[in-house]
Simulated scan of single mutants.
Amino acid sequence: MATKSDETHPRPPRPRNSRATKAVLLAAATSEFAERGLAGARIDRIAERAGANKRLLYVYFGDKEALFEAVLRHEIGQLLKETPLTDGDLVAFAAARFDYMLAHPETARLAAWRRFEHAHWSETEIESYRTRVDAVAAAQRAGRLDDSLPAVDLFAVVLRITESWLDAPPALRAVAGTQPLSAERLDEHRAALLESVRRITAPRRSGPERDASGA
Rank of each mutant, 00 (worst) to 15 (best):
Y100D: 01
D211T: 06
V91L: 03
P203G: 09
L57V: 03
E209N: 07
V136G: 09
E106H: 10
E32W: 02
V175A: 13
I46A: 00
A111N: 13
P169H: 05
E125P: 00
H74Y: 03
G88W: 04
R109G: 07
A171Y: 10
E125L: 03
R115F: 15
S31M: 10
G77S: 03
L67Y: 00
G37W: 04
A96W: 12
D99S: 13
A215F: 08
E188T: 14
R49Q: 01
S18Y: 15
E106D: 12
R205D: 12
K22L: 08
D187C: 08
P208Y: 11
R130C: 05
P15Y: 10
A52P: 05
E7V: 14
L57C: 00
R97T: 11
L154G: 02
G51A: 08
P203Q: 07
I200H: 12
I161H: 01
V158Y: 04
F155W: 10
A171Q: 10
Y129H: 11
R16H: 15
A47N: 09
R130L: 07
N53G: 14
E125Y: 03
P170T: 03
A156I: 07
E188V: 14
W165M: 11
L166Y: 06
R205N: 09
I200G: 11
Y100V: 00
L26D: 09
S182L: 14
A23H: 14
D153Q: 14
L181F: 15
L181T: 15
Q179C: 10
P84K: 10
D44K: 05
Q140I: 09
I76K: 01
A111W: 12
A95I: 03
R14C: 07
K22T: 08
P150H: 06
R141V: 00
A52R: 05
R144A: 10
I126F: 14
H104R: 04
I46Y: 02
R173E: 10
G40M: 05
Q78N: 11
L80Q: 12
R109N: 07
V157R: 01
H9A: 05
Y100I: 01
R204I: 05
I76G: 01
A95S: 04
R160S: 15
R173A: 11
